[in-house]
Design a protein around this nucleic acid. Structure first.
Length: 191
DNA sequence: AAACAATCCAACCGCAGCCCG
DNA sequence: TCGGGCTGCGGTTGGATTGTT
């Protein structure tokens, strides 16, 4: 049986106080993101390492955007989700200043409902791009294409796989390379 | 103004995978 | 090669806020 990540009897849970936030920020600014397991004690926090990590990554990191999602970001999320599914960290990796949690929440509370209620309308704009991209790219680089309706080609664990429905034959160029997430803007993330 | 419902989002949980001895 | 420890990820929860009746 695996040990729990921390002694839960002696850790705080729930919302973070300003003092806790400050302690965490101060510590990470001084020492960087080191070992999360030992960080709470070193920083004088009664939290488990996981909680500290989450708080930092999702809320306290200085490079995070705190404003709402733009139209272009929403559009990108929809496209990436069509390709990657619920790989929120990968999706967030393509959106500077956004976290996986934020993207996931935004998807669940905004985009999913939108797509459910306006499914065909939602694809109208995509279809215009599809037509343009189709003739240009279809044969060149299949791994950057998906079928908007039901996935002609999927990306599965680093491997391209044909999927079960190829009815539409419509492709969209996502202009996507699956590089290591956040490498484009890692300076603030890794410091 | 109060009660209830719906929505949002920060935080938690448990699992998977990576790393290292 | 194997096993244990640690981190990261995705799913889920629950409290706070906002909207509706």
């Amino acid at each position: 049986m695996r040990k729990p990540c921390c002694d839960k009897q002696h850790t705080n849970k729930g919302a973070w106080s300003q003092q806790e936030d400050q302690k965490l920020v101060d510590y990470i600014q001084k020492h960087g993101e080191g070992c999360w397991r030992s960080l709470p004690q070193a920083a004088g926090l009664l939290r488990c390492g996981k909680s500290c990590r989450l708080r930092w990554r999702n809320y306290l990191r200085p490079d995070l955007k705190r404003d709402g999602f733009g139209e272009d970001e929403e559009d990108l999320i929809i496209r990436l989700h069509a390709l990657l599914g619920n790989r929120w960290s990968l999706i967030a990796g393509r959106l500077p200043g956004r976290t996986d949690n934020e993207v996931k929440n935004y998807w669940n509370s905004h985009i999913r409902k939108k797509l459910e209620s306006h499914r065909h309308v939602g694809f109208t704009r995509l279809r215009a791009e599809i037509s343009a991209a189709r003739s240009k790219n279809q044969a060149n680089d299949p791994e950057t294409f998906i079928d908007v309706n039901n996935q002609v080609v999927g990306f599965n664990g680093g491997k391209l796989e044909p999927t079960n429905d190829s009815s539409s034959g419509i492709y969209i160029n996502l202009d996507l390379t699956l590089s290591i997430p956040s490498k484009n803007f890692e300076s603030s993330d890794e410091n």
